[in-house]
Write a protein that binds this DNA or RNA. Structure first.
Lengths: 341, 341
DNA sequence: GCAGACAATGACAACGTTATCATTGATCCT
DNA sequence: AGGATCAATGATAACGTTGTCATTGTCTGC
């Protein structure tokens, strides 16, 4: 006895029957594969429209062996602003090219969480992965992905052969920022940053030190404060560095959020910015224009990086091009938080 | 001639063969359906582990007729902070209960974009939808979803029978904020807000007006500025309202971002906050503690709302419970941007 | 010792696509 | 005229699960 098909979504066979062609031809038309006569195609499209039919993604995925989804690995308890930029950049691009974006937040890469990440590809939930800091430089993860041939593109992180990376020239950005402070006459330029072992930290620090050495200043003679990349670090760092017997006249914060924290502390301590101390950030997140004084910083094109990473990943997945690393500029933006000494 | 299976992921039949049971039993074990003897189950689990096997999601989705994904509809070019909170709240919950989260940004609900949203369910990309402002109050969309029996939960938006909503008591929040300003001796309390037609706007305004009327003040006698919910509106609103011949002594901004914009403008105009004018926001987003002075506001539990909405949606999808609306509190948080007149 | 109940398992057909290869006609060349 | 070529189409078998229903054993109670 045939099962009663009440209110079930129509399938490709119904459309085929209604338009008098085979399933395969319907499939060809709806996927725009070509090599179908225009009048046949029209008939099919009309039948599909009449039935309110759309291809079933699950069936398509199973048959094709691909999910048409890409995953983006994010870190828990981080700067939301940056996370939002990453996701929104990736989402815009993936939506435009017909891929779904599956965000996945991860607190650590161990045990069940590790299994969860690797299952993403094994279970065909995604065709590939976008890795953001700090996952883009987690060697255990990178090794696992390489071993399992999981396509992936990293956003930032050290250049490693065999791992495609979408990069911004953070070293240049930090160099430009430091030069800017030097040009304003600052000599004692302190630095506040997050985890030292991260590649972003090292790159930005390299730019900072490069500029100092050019000006014949020994970076080791300057005060610094490192912890993590959250607001509180900027806040505490400013207090500590400005309380020094020989306080810096300028502070380079390796992130806008850090700079925002430092500036807020200055307000609390009645230290005028940039009158008494100049403060620069890095990243050019939207907060840079929301605080007072507005922040001198360098634009890290986070959203664009994410969008480009998606494009690169899809190229890898579809085997279109040989993967190449990408490096975007990080231009200086001078605003109100820095001034002549 | 059998196809050579080189490096292909193992399927359930391999596991069945390796453990000497049928496919169905493997399926039962891996899905923890029960009614399998413990020693059989162990054999199966060992075989699966040895082969590095995991169930294929696409096949599972096709067979089950459900995607185990939920979509979240976001609006383009909005406050990123709020978007990030929504996504992160929803993501945490959905990840915990084994659902994937598929964010979808939408600029308008027409033409191809409308088709895209509706296709999400028709193509079985998602089992249901979370609607955020302003989509949660788009009547055309709501009608389409009802017509197609697409399970959905709205975050904010007017209470409409038949549409489940996760709500925060914004009216109470705005009332508390206004009372706070009144208690500080303010009488001329201006208001800055976004789109007036939005339900959030109306609710918050209702709380504001309620408090004023209690204090025998006619809300219509007070200055206001409405545009959208972006930083620039707060910025422009503050300038306009403070330039009035009878400027307000306090400003209630219907959103933290708006308040941040207003405060920045005050800094530019050398109007001290809260000395000359008190400013309150609403939402308690992370920016409230990053600016100076820190912002008096009311906590809208955005992330929790999103998480709860996911839970409610899954209940609806799985037919577990009768859907009920949810209303969370919006408690007042007094910080540095408001003071006695 | 046997019907009945019940727990554990299996066979096989969905689920709705796409891939592969075969089959049509029509068109082209010599 | 007679292949050869080519564009358009179709038949059928995957893809890898789960649902349904049937089939085993294994106990019970009498």
């Amino acid at each position: 006895m045939p099962r009663h098909r009440s209110r079930t979504a129509p399938s490709i066979v119904e459309v085929a029957a209604a338009s008098g062609v085979s399933m395969k031809t319907v499939s060809r038309v709806l996927n725009e594969e070509g090599s179908v006569r225009e009048d046949t195609a029209r008939k099919v499209r009309e039948a599909a429209a009449a039935l309110g039919y759309t291809l079933n993604l699950s069936a398509q995925r199973l048959a094709r062996g691909r999910s048409h989804n890409i995953g983006i690995l994010l870190v828990a308890r981080s700067n939301w602003q940056r996370t939002a930029e990453l996701v929104s950049g990736a989402l815009g691009k993936s939506q435009a090219i017909g891929y779904g974006l599956v965000p996945h937040v991860l607190a650590k890469y161990e045990g069940a969480e590790r299994d969860g990440v690797l299952a993403l590809k094994a279970r065909k939930a995604v065709d590939g992965l976008i890795l953001t800091v700090p996952w883009s430089e987690n060697l255990k993860l990178l090794a696992d992905l390489a071993e399992r041939a999981v396509p992936h593109v990293r956003i930032s992180g050290p250049l490693i052969p065999g791992h495609v990376t979408a990069h911004s020239n953070d070293e240049m950005g930090a160099y430009a920022l430091t030069r800017h402070l030097l040009d304003l006459g600052h000599r004692r330029i302190g630095v506040i940053g997050g985890q030292r072992h991260l590649n972003v930290t090292r790159e930005r620090l390299a730019g900072y030190e490069h500029a100092l050495r050019e000006a014949a200043i020994d970076p080791r003679s300057l005060p610094h404060f490192f912890d993590d990349y959250l607001f509180g670090t900027g806040f505490r760092g400013a207090k500590e560095l400005l309380a020094l017997s020989a306080p810096p006249s300028a502070l380079l914060c390796l992130t806008d959020i850090l700079a925002a924290g430092a500036i807020r502390r200055c307000h609390e301590m009645n230290v005028t910015v940039p009158g008494k101390v100049s403060i620069a950030g890095m990243g050019d997140s939207s907060i840079a224009e929301m605080i007072w004084p507005t922040l001198t910083t360098a634009t890290v094109p986070t959203a664009e990086l994410a969008a480009r990473a998606v494009g690169m990943l899809v190229d890898v997945i579809e085997g279109k091009t040989a993967p190449t690393d990408l490096i975007l500029d990080v231009p200086l933006v001078v605003r109100g938080s820095t001034a002549r000494v």
